[in-house]
């Protein structure tokens, strides 16, 4: 059988994100990446790692939901969050360093946002 890393995806709701993140932070996990899929709603995956234990928090939400930034716990999350905000048009509030959609300064507005194409 396929012998790759186990995929541990924990589903949470948008308002649980801060509580879940702080738990992982206190347990010594490091934030590995924040990924976003924008298709039939927004799906955010927060990936964490501690001693090669790879865990993902999964948030599914609709386009209008605002989500809290985790940059208050993981300062370096600001890069991921700015990227997601700019490319996907996800509403993230309270990012510690907010580039206001000017991280990549691309010519197209939120190119990964499928909603506008419909």
């Amino acid at each position: 059988m396929y012998s790759m890393e186990e995929q541990k995806i924990i589903k949470i709701s948008p308002d649980e994100i801060l509580a879940e993140t702080v738990d992982l932070k206190n347990a010594g996990y490091r934030l590995v990446a924040i990924s976003c899929v924008n298709k039939d709603g927004i799906e955010l995956s927060y990936s964490f790692d501690k001693d090669y234990d790879f865990v993902h928090l999964r948030v599914n939400m609709d386009y209008d939901t605002e989500i809290e930034s985790v940059s208050c716990f993981y300062q370096y999350a600001f890069l991921y969050e700015n990227e997601i905000k700019e490319l996907f048009g996800v509403k993230i509030k309270n990012i510690t360093v907010d580039f206001n959609d000017n991280l990549y300064r691309i010519s197209v507005k939120t190119p990964f946002n499928m909603k506008e194409e419909e």
Partner: peptide, 17 residues
Amino acid sequence: GEHFIRLEQPRGEVIYY
């Protein structure tokens, strides 16, 4: 389906999803 992968590149850990 979906899958996360991690590798060690010369520059460090890389994630593919």
